[in-house]
Design a protein around this nucleic acid. Structure first.
Lengths: 133, 133
DNA sequence: GCTAAATGATACCACGTTGGTATCATTTGT
DNA sequence: ACAAATGATACCAACGTGGTATCATTTAGC
């Protein structure tokens, strides 16, 4: 059970690197040299970040990516949702019908409260805050 | 990303039911009638709970399962570990070598602290506490 | 205008986990 | 002896993760 997958992890690393280039256009091959991440996989990740409005992309020779938002506005929870789907720790398995079992509902309540805590924490983490330390 | 799977969920439901039978032997077919869980799947789950020492089993006609521990001693986190493996939200993807990227380590720290919180919460949940409400 | 360098869009694949089913063997109460 | 129950295993489909491969398109620079 992983909280973050490689997609998200690689995305964080790449974004941190791009931030430090300070609005210079960064290509996949630049990133591959520094981050030791498989190229085609990283391309897919950056393309997703582009379509989600987190990166801008520039085609053609000399092209690559730049940040589309300030790093304070890129939240870890957004990245998780892009690559791992909506963040929901708890799904009632009997949601459609007959979850009348009074035993299981306290479980749901507990899990819900854990989920709230984790979500709040994840929302407080941004690329900027990760770079600060 | 699920915190608990159906295995764990079904195990909780079954254990709650068995507790309420108060040391009467409960068979899989008894449980299937009440809990609407696929029989063969539930059997596999109960067998696992038996080999893990959470249930006692009795073969032969009139056989079935009883609790092997008091419900206060059955922790949700134990069930999760039986069915979903060791509870570890955070794994450094670059653990072997070169995780020299100073950007990613603050991430690890954050995830670690979230993991600690969740683990503590899960350890505080028992079958007994779920039955209380 | 040609070419090389870059992304866009897709399709594909291997592997592990989840959520089951099926089968045969064994035990035990009646 | 028989039926009812678990034990042990093997099997399977669907899905998510972690990739690779390919072709199309755009663009800078000669």
């Amino acid at each position: 059970m992983k909280l973050i997958t490689r997609y998200t992890d690689y995305a964080v690393r790449a974004l941190c690197f791009i931030v430090k280039e300070n609005q210079e256009v960064v290509s996949v091959s630049d990133l591959v040299k520094r981050l030791k991440i498989p190229g085609p996989f990283l391309r897919k990740i950056l393309q997703a970040l582009n379509t989600e409005g987190i990166l801008n992309s520039y085609k053609g020779q000399g092209g690559g990516f730049t940040l589309a938002r300030r790093p304070e506005k890129i939240f870890l929870v957004d990245l998780i949702e892009i690559f791992q789907g909506a963040f929901k720790l708890n799904e009632c398995f009997f949601k459609k019908k007959d979850c009348p079992n009074t035993n299981t509902c306290p479980l749901k309540k507990k899990i819900d409260s854990i989920e709230k805590y984790v979500t709040t924490e994840l929302k407080s983490i941004t690329i900027a805050s990760l770079l600060r330390g």
